[in-house]
């Protein structure tokens, strides 16, 4: 599904990703761990097409399509979803209005009929319920005055409603208490399916107790320096990252 080859990318003239390789197949869950500043969020931003995050070398394809040929909104419509590390507020624009605009735009891109308001509302309510958000959050401005945990749950709610094929979660677990963490994990697990893939960026093993990954990768200094199964996360939890950096050096 997602194929990243030797990706080199820079932000404001500074090279952050330095030849990154990653192969994600449908149905898989990949966890990406690594020290602060390693380039994990940068990877998500480059994939999603954020302004000023420039690819300088390598290729990335999503189901065979070169993503760098696509605008950010086209990548989204192709089924790429990024759950943000720091979700931003859009005052006065209700969640509902925002999500309707999103679904309408995506449907239009795909040349399919957008869901009517009734079925859309129904799905939106269900998505809220799934992440334990009160229905009122649909009427409130996007992330406006939400607590940190509510913002993260709101991201997952959007993901559940939009049903993307590639879900990238950037530290969705940071700042969540254990209950909220379980809610988020439950949402993700509900979405797991043979034709959907997840890239989960996290610092903590505890999330991976609930979202069990197929692969764990360590991203350090702009590269994947080690990959393994779910046991690797436990090892990292015990030993930290420094032994890896030594190993690489």
């Amino acid at each position: 599904m997602l194929s990243i080859n030797n990706l080199v990318a820079e932000v404001e003239g500074k090279t952050i990703l330095k030849g990154l390789n990653l192969e994600v197949k449908p149905g898989e869950v990949h966890a990406i761990m690594g020290p602060n500043g390693a380039g994990k969020s940068t990877l998500g931003n480059v994939l999603a097409g954020r302004e000023n995050y420039e690819k300088t070398d390598g290729t990335v394809t999503l189901d065979g399509k070169d993503i760098f040929e696509l605008e950010p909104e086209e990548r989204a419509a192709e089924g790429m979803f990024l759950a943000f590390q720091y979700p931003v507020e859009i005052p006065g624009v209700s969640n509902l209005e925002f999500l309707k605009a999103s679904i309408d735009a995506i449907s239009k891109y795909r040349g399919v009929e957008a869901p009517d308001s009734v079925s859309f509302m129904k799905k939106a309510r269900e998505a809220c319920k799934a992440v334990n958000l009160d229905q009122n959050f649909l009427k409130r401005g996007v992330n406006e005055g939400f607590s940190g945990g509510e913002k993260k749950r709101n991201e997952i709610m959007q993901m559940m409603l939009l049903e993307p094929k590639l879900c990238i979660l950037d530290e969705t677990d940071s700042g969540l208490d254990i209950d909220a963490l379980q809610v988020v994990a439950k949402g993700v697990n509900e979405l797991r399916s043979p034709d959907r893939a997840f890239v989960v960026v996290t610092h903590y093993q505890r999330l991976l107790d609930y979202i069990v990954p197929d692969y764990v990768h360590v991203l350090a200094d702009g590269k994947i320096v080690k990959s393994g199964g779910k046991e690797l996360a436990l090892e990292l939890e015990k030993k930290g990252y420094s032994w890896l950096e030594q190993e690489v050096a």
Partner: peptide, 14 residues
């Protein structure tokens, strides 16, 4: 803000 624009675009909105 750029962040707001990017959020919208990431959700498919031009």
């Amino acid at each position: 803000s750029d962040d707001q624009m990017f959020l919208c675009q990431q959700r498919g909105i031009d």
